[in-house]
Design a protein around this nucleic acid. Structure first.
Length: 429
RNA sequence: GGAGAGGUGGCGGAGUGGUCGAUCGCGCCGGUCUCGAAAACCGGAAUACCUGCAAAGGUAUCGUGGGUUCGAAUCCCACCCUCUCCGCCA
């Protein structure tokens, strides 16, 4: 949610920010809505104040036994009842219309974000690791013999397209990846492990910005719950409605959860393999910080994600997303793109975003600097650390060998009973 | 799923139609006392929005949303959540 004060203070800057996003300028419309809203509130509150005063006087009259005065005041209030109700309704309506507009506006980008309409304008910040030289043509992950445990036929029978079943060794490798990531974040990065529901109330999705604008991207159940598209939703909303006491920030959470996405609008894209699924696993990191610490926290969080890739010996590059490619709730996003030799390209495996107070305003999440201090909105950040299914792809494609087996990263072997290989038969060895 | 109880300020806990935004206790902040502290005593302190340069005033908030009433923390309805017992269950 955008800050209304920022709009009032500097409408031109507000519009410039929207234009960078490829949206149209709307400060004048919003200011008109805001002005109408304030007028309506003032009118309604004046009427209410009159009513309250009359009611109070009526009570006093009744107490004194002055029936005539009581009746006069009661009738006075009754006569104005419809008018008050109308004024209140008008005020509520004006408020709702402004809110409806504000809640669909994207976050304001930081100045450092590169201009540009889409991913072609993303800026590469750095690279790590050299892509391996192959003496055979590297296969895509679902073509590798060692990945024969990917059972798309069975998943199709059970659940339909964009689902998969993992059988045998590959299932354990995925599990090892998730555990390894979590342990690394806990032991080396100081994050707090969270286990959370994956079904949440709609207001929880609203808090992080998935609703109301992106309802079609998530699954809603018959009970009115929603399946989380990312643990960002649950982790971030842990502070929703809270006023955090001095000294508790920063909060740093991580969780390994299932994520569910409808993938509406991506029909035909990435249909082969497990790159884009309706259900996948992800280790998510969320930090809640003071306003002055959030930018540094984004760098820290990116380091945490990069550290996972380094330990897995997976080459990657860091991209600063352009204005047009940055997500709705983010001020700035760094994507980590892992090298996939089978696809012969870098693919997104993590996305680390700083959201400023954008989500905090939606969630009403605040903190105090001092015990008696005024509450201020916190800043929130989220980042994948990492997408487990996509990491599995990267491990398969980067570790594949001419004989159809996959050499696994050494760092995983403690999680695999010492195994270092996924054989061409799909077993651990 | 059935039956019952309950949700009040940081916490505990009063308050069943009228100066109640809310008694009181604890905790918190400031002060007096003290070499200093404790104790005691005195004072202070919610959040959001609206008007206003400000001082200040107004409106709303006692789980949430409606309703009744001149007037609702108090009465009615729905929903959410918690607890107890029963049933079912990983």
């Amino acid at each position: 949610m955008q800050d209304l004060k920022a709009l009032r203070d500097d409408p031109e800057a507000f519009d410039r920010a929207l234009l960078r996003r490829g949206a149209s300028a709307q400060s004048s419309e919003l200011l008109a809505l805001d002005s109408g809203r304030r007028t309506a509130i003032a009118a309604a509150e004046t009427a209410l104040a009159e009513r309250n005063a009359a009611s109070k006087a009526a009570g006093a009259a009744k107490g004194k036994g002055d029936e005539a005065e009581f009746t006069r005041l009661r009738d006075l209030v009754n006569a104005k009842k419809d008018e008050i109700a109308a004024l209140e309704a008008a005020a509520r309506d004006a408020e709702a219309r402004l809110k409806a507009r504000l809640e669909t506006l994207p976050n304001t980008l930081l100045d450092s974000v590169p201009d540009g309409p889409d991913e072609t304008a993303n800026r590469e910040a750095r690279r790590w690791g050299a892509p391996r030289a192959f003496d055979f043509k590297p296969l895509e992950h679902f073509e590798i013999p060692a990945a024969r445990g990917l059972d798309f036929e069975a998943a199709g029978r059970l659940s339909g397209a964009r689902f998969t079943i993992l059988r045998g060794g590959i299932a354990r490798v995925q599990r090892a990846l998730g555990q390894f990531m979590l342990d690394t974040h806990l032991n080396e990065h100081g994050l707090q492990e969270i286990w959370s529901p994956v079904l949440v109330k709609p207001e929880t999705l609203y808090g992080t910005g998935q609703l109301p604008k992106f309802a079609e991207d998530s699954f809603e159940t018959t009970t009115g719950h929603w399946l989380v598209p990312t643990a960002e939703v649950t982790l971030t909303n842990l502070v929703a409605g809270q006023i955090l006491e001095p000294g508790v920030l920063p909060l740093r959470f991580c969780a390994l959860t299932q994520c569910f996405r409808s993938e509406a609008g991506s029909a035909g894209r990435d249909v082969r393999g497990i790159l884009r699924q309706h259900q996948f696993e992800k280790v998510e990191m969320v930090s809640v910080t003071t306003p002055e610490d959030s930018l540094a926290e984004q760098a820290r969080m990116t380091d945490c994600a990069e550290n996972i890739l380094k330990k897995l010996e997976l080459p990657y590059r860091v991209m600063e997303l352009s204005a047009g490619d940055t997500g709705f709730g983010a001020q700035r996003t760094y994507d980590l793109e892992v090298w996939l030799p089978g696809q012969d390209m870098f693919r997104e495996i993590s996305s680390v975003s700083v959201c400023g107070a954008f989500q905090a305003r939606r969630m009403n999440a605040r903190f105090r600097r001092e015990v008696e201090g005024r509450p201020e909105f916190v800043h929130t950040l989220n980042g994948s650390g990492l997408a487990v299914g996509r990491t599995l792809i990267a491990v398969l494609e980067n570790g594949q060998q001419a004989d159809g087996s996959v050499k696994l990263p050494a760092t995983l072997s403690p999680y695999l009973g010492g195994a270092t290989l996924l054989t061409a038969e799909g077993t651990l060895g």
